[in-house]
Design a protein around this nucleic acid. Structure first.
Length: 208
DNA sequence: AAAGTCGTCAACCGCCGTGGA
DNA sequence: TTCCACGGCGGTTGACGACTT
């Protein structure tokens, strides 16, 4: 682990404390719970592990699609991306991205760079065009879809081998540009635009 | 079977934005 | 206006298990 692992007793104390006093006021949690941990550790443990309704296990193809699309628009804003994936934590998504997706995406953007992860396999080696298609596999090694490099936007998108249709996956290009411009610009209504955009995202996700 | 390498993920660290004094 | 404490976030680390040689 990256630090000292939490014990069952510590988990119990933290959970009990949050149930009793609620979330927030993290600076008081270590004292209230009787834990020899800093406020940040307590908060992290709660958010990433102890909080109810946390979804564990492998990511579904639908979730991977969402992560890829949202990351294309938002960049490394894991907490916002996590907000669009019920039950998933920002840390989980960040880890999944770093392990499974970042090398793949960077590989496409970097040209010759070969994927390191064995979970991603070229569909064909002989054709330069076909190198832009790669299988997405789940943790059992079963093919879930095909990763395709979007020629116009340099955006990776997934062609689902099952029920998901392509038109539901691709984001509207103009909308993308608006969001990017909003993120880059220094307009006075940035916050409102952002809130509007989050609402748009909710609607889009609901439509999937 | 042993050693080396790689992938995963929980945990920590440092920075930033915000709100209150 | 400035300072400080806090919450929150993204980047990084490192232990451990799985896999490969």
């Amino acid at each position: 682990m990256g630090g000292i692992a939490w014990t069952e007793e510590e988990d119990y104390l933290l959970k009990k404390c949050i149930e009793q006093y609620g979330e927030g006021k993290w600076h008081r949690v270590p004292q209230l719970a009787g834990l020899n941990r800093c406020r940040k550790s307590c908060r992290l443990r709660w958010l990433n592990y102890l909080r109810p309704n946390i979804k564990r296990g492998s990511f579904t193809p639908e979730e991977v699609e969402l992560i890829l699309n949202l990351h294309n628009i938002l960049g490394n804003r894991w907490s916002i991306i996590a907000g669009r994936l019920p039950g998933r934590t920002a840390n989980d998504i960040k880890n999944y991205w770093n392990c499974h997706l970042s090398k793949k995406v960077n590989g496409h953007q970097g040209g010759d760079q070969k994927p390191n992860s064995t979970k991603w396999k070229p569909i064909q080696e002989e054709s330069s065009k076909s190198k832009e298609k790669e299988y997405v596999e789940d943790q059992n090694g079963e093919k879930q879809g095909i990763l395709i490099q979007n020629q116009n936007q340099n955006v990776p998108i997934i062609e689902q081998s099952g029920s998901i249709r392509m038109e539901n996956i691709q984001m509207d290009y103009q909308f993308d540009q608006e969001v990017v411009a909003m993120a880059d610009g220094d307009g006075c209504n940035k916050r409102e635009l952002w809130d509007d955009w989050v609402s748009e995202m909710d609607l889009w996700i609901d439509s999937l």
